[in-house]
Write a protein that binds this DNA or RNA. Structure first.
Lengths: 216, 216
DNA sequence: CGGGAAGTTGAGCCGCGTCAACCATAGTGG
DNA sequence: CCACTATGGTTGACGCGGCTCAACTTCCCG
């Protein structure tokens, strides 16, 4: 895969990596740091459509559909691996396994979005918050970033609110509820989960397994 | 593409084509009729994650990830084109254009889900309903199924409610509002849109263009 | 020490969910 | 041919979860 790598790129916290509507000629894989995918509505509201963790691919839509359908922003400092879009073709022509992996990746994204849609559409406030915290905890644990039930959580409450379709105020109050009830504590940029099982149950997510993704 | 076709399949209205969790060895393309994609939560609630129209691909997740992440149900009688999963490999190995098209398709699905998530997460009741009706109207018009501002609409109100995260009752009342205000009338299995522009505006969807998809 | 960004908390209201009838249509069996 | 039933649509009453507004508190960073 290193054949395709054309360089590394470092994004500063708060900077926009790809803009909705842009047709970038570059694609990225996140190596370190965390980011956000979001869509902006005409009245300024924002829907967060995904959290970017190390290993995630960025810009597939642009590569395959010609333009990005959401923006991508670095939350922490991020280092990324850069590819050129033109190499996508080479990949499809000469590396069927890799291109299959890419499709797998797209299907996985679709799966994640479907899960999120179910949460946003069907759950009440407390379940939504429990659901994201749990999903986060599981993904980061799978990445080996869990130390003593603590995982990094560099986002703002507003990001979680925009992800789950709740107001900032209500998100805050719901987090407080989870805290005093002893399920999980999110303070500063670390999330501590005290009772993983019960948190997962609150988020109706007993059966969700971590995704295994083929290397790319 | 006909090389890959292994047959045709007809599904009766109300029947389940693929079940969540199933690892089918068959993939389908819808030729005629309409269907639903949905996820079922543990407490029985349902989130509709997509409407299937002629030309849509069914079972990509199963083909590429090993199992379906949502169920698929025929709403009307549907006729579908059937492929075998094993042929997916052949496609990736020997038909880069086709496999690229498949990835494009997966990315398009992801895009649609993102749009839907934004609507469900950020809009209020009337905007949500206006948004789906408008999306439906546009997609069906693009398929040439529009006659005199009328398009087929074989779904139940419950399906729309489950798609937009609203209760059946509130969906019904909101539809009534759109009807008396003269935006759109949905009666029986036809949807009549009287003022497309204003309906679209209600749904914050001025800028949404129909997707062009490469043939598969 | 001043200013801006994020988090916290209370008050008050309303959109939407739930409950509960009731109506319309179509298919079924006696 | 007509009760009987099932499915889907319609409408009103009422309560609550979550939104908005608004103040206040940290905590940085210059």
């Amino acid at each position: 895969m290193s054949r395709f790598k054309t360089g590394e790129f470092v994004a500063q916290p708060g900077s926009e990596i790809l803009a909705e509507g842009a047709s970038s000629t570059q694609l990225y894989t996140a190596l370190e740091g965390m980011g956000l995918r979001y869509k902006t509505l005409e009245d300024g509201r924002r829907q967060v459509v995904g959290f970017i963790l190390p290993g995630d691919f960025i810009g597939l839509q642009s590569g395959v559909m010609g333009e990005m359908k959401h923006s991508v922003e670095a939350t922490t400092r991020m280092t990324m691996c850069v590819f050129n879009r033109s190499e996508l073709w080479d990949l499809f022509k000469n590396h069927p396994r890799r291109s299959f992996g890419l499709t797998h990746l797209a299907a996985s994204e679709e799966f994640l979005l479907g899960e999120m849609l179910s949460a946003v559409g069907q759950m009440d406030g407390i379940a939504k918050i429990a659901w994201v915290l749990n999903r986060f905890y599981k993904r980061l644990t799978a990445l080996g970033l869990n130390e003593n039930d603590q995982v990094p959580m560099p986002y703002r409450q507003q990001d979680i609110a925009d992800a789950m379709g709740l107001s900032l105020v209500h998100t805050n109050k719901t987090l407080a509820k989870l805290r005093v009830e002893g399920f999980a504590t999110w303070s500063g940029d670390t999330l501590t989960v005290h009772r993983p099982e019960e948190l997962a149950e609150l988020g109706y997510a007993k059966g969700v397994k971590p995704l295994k993704r083929p290397l790319i």
